[in-house]
């Protein structure tokens, strides 16, 4: 088992390696006064791809919402540091401007707002300047061609009447235009047909650069065949209970989640720091179950 972390993060970001792109420390999050996240630890460096897997309802989307700043997802304790800066108090648009972007598991529709108008306004907002129409068009058309999004979608209303797969494609088109430094993909692969999975995955890979990172939430191995994570984390009951390399995903696909829990608990005396899943310069031990 390899530790792919070393391939990419060394060299490519030599001087920024001191500060991780994202550092989540013992994060607790409530929704409607119910604790959903119960101490998440996760560090992501520039240049890395992380995958999160885990059972339905284990809190994966909650983590993505908390990162993006959904008003109903309240951070009760812990830290979310983005490039060293605490983001818990920031509004979603401030976070977007810092470089975070979320491809939603369930994108909402905005009736009456055309995709082209929406893309222009949002991309201008995030980039902080009005891109000339022509330049914008060129850039957009090129990306649409790559992602297989047809022209007619530009005049349709955002996600209104879109099929499941069309919504996912639009999410990736948006992220491609926004160019985030941290792209969070919440089950982008769900609902995509086989060909779409391939084109969308290529789009996701294009988001991955030396100075950006990807956090990919998924239930299946299939997208990971195209977008290869260096780190795979298992989410359970509001926290990460296991981390490993890309082979962990294969093992999960094979064996399910049961073995993780059984081999995992109990782990007495595991404080927040002890469970911290690190992906920093010291590479993670492969297929570690829990933190020992």
């Amino acid at each position: 088992m390899t530790s792919p972390n070393t391939n990419k993060s060394t060299g490519s970001n030599s001087d920024s390696s001191a500060i991780p792109l994202l550092e989540i420390v013992d994060l607790h999050v409530n929704v409607e006064d119910k604790e959903i996240l119960k101490g998440v630890n996760l560090t992501i460096n520039a240049g890395e791809i992380h995958a999160i897997m885990g059972r339905n309802g284990s809190g994966k989307s909650t983590l993505s919402y908390a990162l993006m700043g959904h008003p109903r997802y309240k951070v009760t304790s812990g830290k979310m540091l983005y490039k060293g800066q605490e983001i818990s108090e920031m509004s979603p648009d401030q976070r977007a401007k810092l470089g975070l972007a979320l491809a939603f598991q369930y994108p909402v529709s905005i009736p009456g707002v055309s995709v082209s108008n929406f893309l222009r306004k949002t991309v201008n907002a995030v980039r902080g300047r009005d891109i000339p129409v022509k330049e914008f068009r060129l850039e957009l058309k090129a990306l649409m061609a790559k992602l297989g999004v047809k022209d007619e979608f530009l005049s349709r209303y955002v996600n209104d009447g879109f099929s499941g797969g069309e919504k996912k494609r639009l999410e990736i088109l948006q992220l491609s235009m926004l160019n985030p430094s941290l792209a969070i993909l919440d089950e982008t692969d769900s609902g995509l047909d086989i060909d779409a999975l391939k084109t969308v995955s290529e789009g996701v890979n294009a988001l991955s650069k030396a100075d950006t990172a990807i956090l990919l939430i998924t239930h299946y191995q299939r997208m990971l065949n195209y977008v290869q994570p260096q780190f795979v984390h298992v989410f359970q009951d509001g926290k990460i209970v296991a981390s490993g390399g890309s082979e962990l995903a294969l093992e999960l696909e094979d064996r399910g989640y049961e073995w993780v829990t059984s081999e995992m608990q109990p782990t007495p005396g595991t404080g927040p720091n002890a469970t911290k899943t690190s992906s920093s310069s010291s590479s993670p031990s492969p297929a570690v179950v829990g933190a020992k």
Partner: peptide, 21 residues
Amino acid sequence: FYLMSRGLNQDEATAMIVNGF
């Protein structure tokens, strides 16, 4: 939330929803 996560502030996001309406 969807619109704000795309960089629009609350007023801009509301205006966009209203214009769409």
